[in-house]
Simulated scan of single mutants.
Amino acid sequence: MPGNPLAQVSPQDNNQTDQFHALYLEDTQRLLDDRLVLRAGVRQTYGTTRFEFTPYLTGQINGARPYEATTASVGAAYQATDWAAFRVGASSGFRAPTATEIAADYNTFGGGRIFGNPAIRPETSEQVEVGTTLTRGASRLDVALFQNVISDRITTRSRGANSNTSDYINNPGDVVIRGIEVQSETDMIRSFGWEPGVWHWRAYANGNYNFDMKDEGARAVPSANTDRVERVYEYQLALGTRFGQAGIRYPWTIQVQGVLNGPVWYNTEENLRVPAAEPSRDYIWRKDPFVLVNLRGEVDVMPGVKLFAQVRNLFDVNYHPLFIAIAGQQPTLADLRFYNGSGGTSAPGRDVQIGLQARF
């Protein structure tokens, strides 16, 4: 990793063992000839995160850290007609910090350094959702409006405008996300009125759009250039189709899928050129959308055994979902003094896999 002389640093994830016990109670009531369903539940969780030895980690934290939480959910669903159902729900959530977030000390591939925070608190969240499911003939459509409020979100923050060191922190303000989710699927053969026989063909589209994404803790950072929530895509969309044959000696299916990931905001821990690439080390970037296309084919060679072949990232897109300095990018945004000869980071390119899958 970066340095002169080079030195072995600890892994990016600390070793840990988790143990938890929980009691969950739920009650469901059906009314109006089972068309109205009311549900409520509560869960009490007691857990312990035990720190395990992590190679090359200085200042090891010994012992265990306990946590507990009470979470609940309530909801109602109403089947208004044979083709339309409506629902509403509210729930709370909880996430305990990991050993990495409490005690990390590691270097990123881009030369930055991140420290854990022993005083970090658990995340909590509150969600509200209203939605409807419409089923008509060969098609199904599900639409939901939601609000998610995250308190004490665990994230990283740079130590200053000219520092390549960050710390895990609890966000000083709530994270508020409001949006819409849509899922749809159509039986294409039925929709065209064809006789299916042994053929099957379905098309689907699933996506979400966060029309309101606000980090209320951004005001605590005077140099923050946006109050957008970091590491959350503004929108995502998956379009795909599956077709094949069933009821024959060797049933088979082919799937084609395109995935769109919208813009995301991120204050990276990489070492980028200042001011050529970014005005300061605590600059929050907006990464552009990218599209990936995936293919998968499979055939049942015997009951419970499938032969499959898949190609992920068919068009060999050079991307990374978060990091800014992409390998091969010209001119590079990376400060190459800290990259040990590399020119940035990329996610995998075209990936071809062939294998057998057995279920028993």
Rank of each mutant, 00 (worst) to 15 (best):
N4H: 09
P5H: 11
V9D: 08
P11A: 13
N15G: 10
N15L: 10
T17M: 06
Q19R: 12
H21D: 02
A22F: 11
L25A: 12
Q29N: 06
R30L: 06
L38K: 05
A40D: 01
R43Y: 11
T45S: 00
G47L: 05
F51D: 11
E52G: 00
E52W: 02
P55K: 10
L57Y: 07
T58D: 12
Q60T: 02
N62G: 08
G63D: 04
G63T: 09
A69H: 03
S73P: 00
G75W: 05
A76D: 03
A80E: 11
W83G: 06
A90C: 01
S91C: 00
S92K: 01
G112N: 08
R113V: 05
I114M: 08
R121K: 04
R121N: 02
R121H: 06
P122S: 09
T124R: 13
T124M: 10
T133N: 09
L134R: 02
R136N: 06
G137D: 11
L141T: 13
V143G: 06
F146S: 09
Q147G: 05
S151Y: 09
D152C: 13
T155E: 14
R157W: 15
R157S: 14
S158I: 01
T165R: 07
S166H: 15
D167R: 07
P172Q: 09
D174C: 13
I177K: 01
I177V: 09
R178Q: 15
I180G: 04
V182R: 00
S184G: 04
E185I: 09
M188I: 12
I189C: 07
R190M: 01
F192Y: 01
F192L: 03
E195R: 15
P196C: 02
W201R: 08
R202I: 08
A203D: 04
A205N: 13
G207T: 13
N210K: 05
K214V: 12
K214M: 04
K214P: 04
D215G: 05
D215I: 11
E216R: 15
R219K: 11
R219P: 00
R219Q: 12
A224T: 10
T226P: 06
R228Q: 14
R228P: 00
E234I: 05
Q236W: 06
Q236R: 09
L237D: 05
A238Y: 04
Q245N: 13
A246D: 14
G247P: 14
I248A: 14
R249Y: 10
W252R: 09
Q255A: 14
V259P: 03
T268K: 04
E269S: 15
P275G: 12
A276D: 13
E278A: 13
S280V: 15
R286K: 13
K287N: 14
P289I: 14
P289W: 08
F290S: 12
M302Q: 02
G304N: 07
G304K: 14
K306V: 02
F308M: 02
V311G: 01
R312P: 01
F315N: 11
D316A: 13
N318D: 01
F323S: 00
I324V: 15
I326C: 03
Q329T: 10
Q330Y: 00
P331Q: 04
F338A: 04
N340E: 07
G344M: 07
A347H: 12
G349Q: 14
I354Q: 08
